Computed example of a mutant assay.
Amino acid sequence: MALKPNSADGRTRSWVQIFIVFGLCCFFYILGAWQRSGFGKGDSIALEITKHGADCNIIPSLNFETHHAGEVGNVGESEKIKSFQPCPPRYVDYTPCQDQKRAMTFPRDNMIYRERHCPREEEKLHCLVPAPKGYVTPFPWPKSRDYVPYANAPYKALTVEKAIQNWIQYEGNVFRFPGGGTQFPQGADKYIDQLAAVIPITNGTVRTALDTGCIGCELGGILVE
């Protein structure tokens, strides 16, 4: 004989399930709001470390005076500063440890030729690498973060290779670095503003930021500003 299902028990179970789901939703909502507020356990630990670190005592016995012998300006004949003559003009783009012609002489196995190879002692140049023709004084910070005079690096190949990645643009007589690349299409500054909404960046709690991407250091440059 089949048993007739009890409709009252079914309704009770449904209400219990609804109550459990509603309770879990409320719990995770409150948990997310608490974490977003920046008052998690990790933040409280960092605040305590910052507080105690600010109250450090200076040892009174420390001596900051110089301890080297002799006086500044008394340079012997054998210690005179050496002067170097300019290198020939063909070395205008010379970078000792990243010399492309020298790199191509190394083995291709395991991409060895792509590694950094500095010249041996007998291969080192003892002259001053000349500046490019038309070289001008670089812009002061923070403008130098976003602009570089074209005359100081007169090559446009990178603006073509990276045209769609928003890394570098040629504008008039300067190179402009928009910032952001492909990862931050709106710019690294907008990304940092979003981080500041959930992370206490401006009050000194966060002291270290790891930029693990390959976007040309825009994140670090914006943070420095």
Rank of each mutant, 00 (worst) to 15 (best):
V75C: 04
A103G: 01
V92G: 01
V72P: 01
T105W: 09
D43S: 11
R108T: 12
G76A: 07
Y94E: 00
I45P: 00
D43H: 07
P86Y: 01
D55A: 13
D93A: 08
K101H: 12
A46D: 02
T66I: 07
S78I: 15
H68K: 11
K51D: 09
P88S: 13
S61F: 14
L62V: 13
M104F: 03
T50L: 13
C56V: 14
G40T: 11
R90A: 00
A54L: 10
M104R: 11
K51F: 09
K101D: 15
D55P: 01
F84I: 00
I58G: 02
K82Y: 03
P60L: 03
V75K: 04
D109L: 15
M111S: 11
E71C: 05
P107V: 04
A54E: 12
E48T: 06
L62M: 08
F106S: 00
N74V: 06
P60Y: 02
D109E: 15
K41H: 08
V92E: 10
G53W: 15
I59L: 11
Y91M: 08
V75H: 04
G53D: 15
Y113D: 08
H52E: 12
P96L: 05
T50N: 07
I49Q: 14
T95H: 07
E48R: 14
S44N: 12
M104D: 08
Y113N: 10
G70T: 06
G76R: 06
A103F: 07
K82W: 07
Y94A: 01
A54F: 00
C56S: 04
Q100E: 13
L62R: 12
P107K: 05
Q100G: 02
D43I: 09
P107H: 06
F106E: 06
S83E: 03
F106Y: 15
N63G: 03
C97D: 04
I81C: 00
I81G: 00
T105C: 11
S61M: 10
N57E: 15
E48Y: 15
N110L: 10
F106D: 03
G42H: 13
G53A: 15
L62K: 12
L62A: 07
Q98I: 10
D99F: 03
D55H: 14
E48N: 10
I58A: 10
K51C: 01
Y113I: 03
R102L: 13
S83P: 00
T95K: 09
E77G: 03
G73Y: 01
Q85A: 12
Q85G: 03
G76M: 02
E71D: 08
Y91A: 00
N63V: 03
P89Q: 07
I49A: 11
T66F: 09
P60Q: 11
N57A: 11
A103E: 07
F84P: 05
K51M: 05
C87N: 04
K80G: 04
K80R: 14
N74L: 07
D93T: 12
D43R: 05
